[in-house]
């Protein structure tokens, strides 16, 4: 039953992060927030008895996707000073 509380707390954090990812003005913060959603989702997959999915989500969702986003953001920031 203690899993339930952990899932509730992580769910609240994920919802806050989703709000941040969608509404924050700074794109870097938004990208990191979406990475945190993936990271917490991978912990929930462990509780849902899906270790395979958890490894994949942790490696891809929260690492590779964020890095690819940052490469593109860096390229956009280099040429656009208004944002």
């Amino acid at each position: 039953m203690s899993y339930t509380f952990i899932v509730i707390i992580m769910g609240i954090i994920m919802l806050v992060m989703a709000f941040t990812a969608i509404y924050h003005k700074n794109l870097k913060v938004a990208v990191i927030a979406s990475g945190i959603i993936s990271l917490f989702a991978s912990v929930i997959y462990i509780f849902l008895a899906a270790p395979d999915v958890a490894i994949t989500e942790a490696a891809i969702g929260s690492a590779l996707t964020v890095v690819i986003f940052f490469y593109v953001l860096n390229k956009i920031r280099l040429t656009d000073d208004t944002k």
Partner: peptide, 25 residues
């Protein structure tokens, strides 16, 4: 290790490939 032991433990080709790509980063 992850993709060689994919048939015994959690893990497999997709996970191992992603880990290799993060080493590449």
């Amino acid at each position: 290790y992850i993709f060689l032991n994919g048939h015994l433990t959690p893990g497999g080709g997709f996970q191992g490939g992603a880990v290799l790509a993060s080493a590449m980063i």
